[in-house]
Amino acid sequence: MPGDQAVVRLVNAVVLSKGFPLLSGVNLEVDRGSLSVVTGANGAGKTSLLRLLAGLDSLTSGEGMVAGVNLNGGDLRLLRRRVGWLGHEGSFYADLSARENLEFAARALERPADEVGSALERVGLTHRVDTTTKQLSAGQRRRLGLAWLLVRRPELWLLDEPYASLDDAGRTFFDQLLREVVAAGATVVISAHDPLRSGGISPQHFHMVGGRMRTT
């Protein structure tokens, strides 16, 4: 609805995969320009929730509205264009270099090519721009994932275990980036095993158990 502050609104959302419940009636509301952290044990449904919000999986039952797109019969392609996804597996073509991967994203989104250089500089990968992604360390791939999102500039950032493989410097950089992104008006939803330690922002915490949400 016009003027609605909620970027994400799920009501009794259920997602089934081959009959198995990945989400078992999730209720969630996330305000625009906020930072939310979803915690939970392995298999609690954190990744499934983010995939639903990204339009990568379909809603089996319940109601959902994400970034202005109705999850029941709405245009999921439009939703995907509005979100940025950083999965914990990596996000790229392994045989392309860091620069080539970002150039592919920039051209796909019709963004200026100079954004690629500035994004790589921002995440501290200027010395590895011509290295193929498969030769990057896990932490460097994670930084490249952040550069990918900087090029994309989505209105909703969905980050699945973003701190995995990052060293202390990487975590500090990531916290700073989060603050800037949220200050710029983007909405960020993070999945993590533990509560966020980010300073300077007061995130909204959610906890998942067995595919259900428990507000903390």
Partner: peptide, 17 residues
């Protein structure tokens, strides 16, 4: 298989090609 590497599919899907 190029498109089905872990993570690639989801990330490229969000480009909305």
């Amino acid at each position: 298989a190029l498109e089905n590497a872990p993570g690639t599919r989801a990330s490229v899907a969000t480009l909305g090609l």
